[in-house]
């Protein structure tokens, strides 16, 4: 339902209504994005953007979790392709 794309915050400013806006880069193209819902973000952080709004900040450590899990599974032998009998 909801396209959400991670992008890097490259600047933060306030609009005339006091709403926090920012410029977010997606592979080099830059969109103006509302940051009002992610008040903690800093320049350089990654946010998930949906229809021009940052709805979440990407957690760097959690982002690596899946790769750690794959390593673990590999050690446990859960990744070997079952041989047909």
């Amino acid at each position: 339902m909801c396209l959400g794309v991670p992008g890097r915050v490259i600047s933060i400013e306030s609009n005339p209504l006091g709403m926090t806006m920012g410029r977010v880069s997606f592979g080099g193209i830059v969109k103006e994005v509302c940051l009002a819902y992610t008040p903690e973000v800093k320049v350089g952080d990654y946010v998930i953007v949906h229809v021009g709004f940052a709805i979440s900040q990407v957690d760097e450590a959690e982002a690596q979790e899946v790769f750690r899990l794959l390593e673990e599974m590999d050690e446990l032998g859960e990744l070997q392709i079952p041989q047909p009998e």
Partner: peptide
């Protein structure tokens, strides 16, 4: 693109596919 490309890696995707085949 960071947080996009690494989740489209064929080798890692295939690892889960294999794990699913083992599991089911």
């Amino acid at each position: 693109m960071k947080y996009v490309d690494e989740y489209r890696n064929e080798a890692d995707v295939q690892k889960f596919a294999a794990a699913i085949r083992r599991l089911v």
